[in-house]
């Protein structure tokens, strides 16, 4: 994996300025938003006198200038200290580590669903472009893609939880159930079915369309003509020659989708009351908790950078033509 290591190194170095811009941008945006963490907190209090606000500002360090707060934040970040959350009144690292796994499970499962089902259906649609099956699949997937995530989630809840009562409406696991081991894993899996479906189904269309479009192009290639001339069965041509070659761009798409899915999980996590990363971001903004929001964005950025790195490595491995030039450092 010598090539992969060089690629990794290049990517990590390149990601440092990206992270710096992300941090500065987030800080500026939060500064520009009217009101600070104390204002947000006083809303939940139902008011309070000016003296109270002043005391709180001092204790949160919000009475200092923006520049000195940014400097404090960056210097503690350099020591890998994410700081203290104002909204949760706990170390940010604890809050982040508590929420991240839920979102990773949700995103991972939803991506797997969208990718496998999407590319499978894409192969079926692309096997006979223009056929009735193709039309139905295309229209169906586009409809799903056009549906807002929260609405799909609510409809699934109404059907499967309220009407049929097959699955729980929300949450990540049964409350205070005392379950451990396999029973607990199954319990969490049961709770994830609907959120994964609502998040996954929306992105499924993308993979389906891309697979189908890719296959459409490959059909016109000379080697397909050659395969046909050899007298291979249509099934064999579809699977071994057409689909296989159309699959590569989907891997790229997988990396790009990681970021979009993080965004989509904000909505899905709220609807299904899953204590995840997306909901945390929303709570951080509502509470004007700048350090928490920055931590969330930094971790998300690192996550996206990592996923894309993995995709690149996978790509270089799958298709030597593409990865070669960059990995060789030319």
């Amino acid at each position: 994996m010598h090539r992969a290591w060089r690629l990794t190194k290049r990517r990590l170095v390149a990601s440092i300025p990206v992270l710096a811009i992300v941090i500065l941008g987030t800080f500026l945006l939060m500064e520009l938003a009217p009101g600070d963490a104390v204002d947000a907190y006083l809303v939940s209090l139902g008011g309070g006198d000016a003296g109270l606000a002043e005391t709180l500002r001092q204790s949160y360090g919000l009475d200092q200038s923006a520049i000195s707060r940014l400097w404090l934040y960056v210097s503690s970040l350099a020591r890998l200290d994410l700081g203290w959350s104002i909204v949760f009144n706990r170390p940010i690292l604890d809050v982040v580590l508590e929420r991240l796994p839920n979102t990773l499970w949700l995103m991972g499962a939803a991506t797997a669903l969208a990718f496998t089902l999407g590319s499978l259906l894409g192969i079926i649609a692309g096997a006979r472009p223009g056929s009735a099956v193709d039309r139905v699949l295309s229209i169906g997937s586009l409809t799903l893609y056009a549906v807002p995530g929260f609405w799909l989630g609510l409809v699934l809840i109404l059907v499967f939880s309220v009407q049929l009562r097959w699955l729980p409406t929300s949450g990540i696991e049964t409350i205070a159930s005392g379950k451990t081991g396999i029973a607990r894993v199954l319990d969490i899996a049961r709770h994830l079915v609907l959120p994964v479906a609502s998040l996954g189904f929306i992105y499924l269309a993308l993979f389906l369309r891309m697979m189908r479009a890719g296959m459409g192009e490959v059909w016109r290639q000379d080697f397909v003509l050659a395969a046909k001339a050899k007298g291979l069965s249509r099934r064999r041509i579809v699977i071994h020659h057409v689909a296989r070659n159309a699959l590569l761009p989907l891997v790229t798409m997988l990396g790009l989708q990681a970021a979009t899915m993080l965004g989509g999980s904000v909505v899905i996590e709220s609807v299904f009351a899953i204590p995840g990363f997306g909901r945390l971001a929303q709570e951080a903004v509502a509470g004007r908790d700048a350090p928490l929001l920055m931590a969330i964005i930094i971790v998300s950025a690192v996550l996206v950078i990592l996923v894309n790195l993995l995709v690149d490595i996978a790509y270089a491995w799958l298709d030597p033509r593409v990865g070669g030039s960059e990995a060789a450092g030319r």
Binding site: F150, I157, T169, S170, S270, V271, A273, P275
Partner: peptide, 8 residues
């Protein structure tokens, strides 16, 4: 039980 979404 924490349920942030009203429809939920």
């Amino acid at each position: 039980r924490v349920l942030p979404d009203r429809a939920g």
